[in-house]
């Protein structure tokens, strides 16, 4: 069997060519989607391919000189570099931390909101504020609140005896990362909240009523009804948040320069140190790590449940 015929069999195209009319219709269909396919290739595929190419080169500063092919040198440099692995570790801590906390916070607030009360719509709107306010604004507000001189948070922590250093929370590597995680969770929990609230409303009330008659308490109802019903939504929230946090740049960069995640590392390498080849290699590795995670996640939870 030739590759071509195997392909047609696999795609089922042969079935569409049973009659001339069907063939004409199929060809028309292809002709109609062709322009979009070409356009999408131009704007999406080309930059990706170019990035892959760059990661195997050293790009000179002079724009008139062509990049020089260096093979795997960029990658070798990266896997042996302390800074790369440091950035990788920071990224993982940041991503997992802010994903977990934003999901949990979103779930908790959604459960709190899953009942009728006066002013629910307004309250729900307010909950969304952290997520919809421009990041530049909230980043400055947080910096202000965290300022060691006049910030409310350090003062409060000092009052409770939890924190006494002269250095700001954001200016010290050991506290900057947890602070950034907290910021990420705070900014993004409304996203999780929104999805959870919508899902909670789709759970029939009669299930809870049946459970009450069956004698199940609040904890049992949550464990046996709410949580299983939310499983798919939790998986989606975690997946999407993981992808976004992994790529997060602005929400870390605007707050502090002490936390270097992979995207920031790539940015610094490419646009501060002007090693564009190396930067391209970092972003490609970022992409590969993420793809591995997504594939693993979907295999684990199953595509149909998402």
């Amino acid at each position: 069997m030739s590759v071509g015929s195997r392909l047609t069999a696999a795609t089922g195209i042969d079935r569409y060519f049973e009659s001339p009319a069907q063939r004409r219709e199929a060809l028309l269909g292809i002709a109609l989607i062709l322009p979009s396919v070409l356009l999408i290739s131009a704007v999406i595929l080309y930059p990706i391919v170019y990035n892959v190419y760059l990661s195997f080169t050293t790009v000179p500063l002079n724009p008139n000189q062509a990049p020089t092919w260096v093979g795997l040198q960029n990658y070798l440099e990266l896997v042996t570099s302390q800074r790369f692995w440091g950035a990788f570790r920071t990224t993982m801590v940041f991503t997992v931390g802010s994903t977990v906390f934003s999901t949990l916070a979103g779930l908790a607030v959604a459960l709190l909101f899953d009942r009728e009360f006066r002013g629910r719509r307004l309250a729900r709107g307010l909950v969304l504020l952290p997520h919809v306010t421009p990041i530049i604004a909230v980043a400055f507000v947080w910096q202000f609140m965290l300022s060691p001189l006049w910030g409310a948070i350090p003062n409060m922590l000092a009052e409770w005896g939890l924190y006494s250093s002269q250095t700001g929370l954001l200016d010290q590597r050991s506290t900057a990362l947890p602070t950034v995680v907290a910021f990420g969770a705070w900014r993004n929990f409304p996203f999780a909240f929104l999805l959870f609230v919508a899902r909670l409303q789709a759970i029939p009330e009669s299930m809870y009523e049946a459970a009450r008659i069956d004698g199940a308490g609040a904890v049992a109802q949550f464990k046996d009804i709410t949580l299983p019903e939310l499983k798919g939504t939790i998986a989606i929230v975690v997946l999407l948040r993981f992808i976004w946090e992994f790529n997060a740049f602005a929400q870390v960069w605007l707050l502090t320069r002490r936390v270097v995640t992979l995207p920031i590392f790539a940015y610094q390498t490419a646009f501060a140190n002007f090693e564009q080849g190396l930067g391209a290699a970092i972003s490609l590795l970022l992409f590969i790590i993420q793809a591995m995670f997504v594939v693993g996640f979907i295999t684990l939870f199953g595509e149909d449940k998402l």
């Binding site: 029939p204 009669s206 299930m207 009523e209 049946a210 459970a211 008659i213 046996d224 009804i225 299983p228 019903e229 499983k231």
Partner: peptide
Amino acid sequence: MVFQDYGLYRT
């Protein structure tokens, strides 16, 4: 009680 939509635990 039997509910109109049965109220079975779907999960």
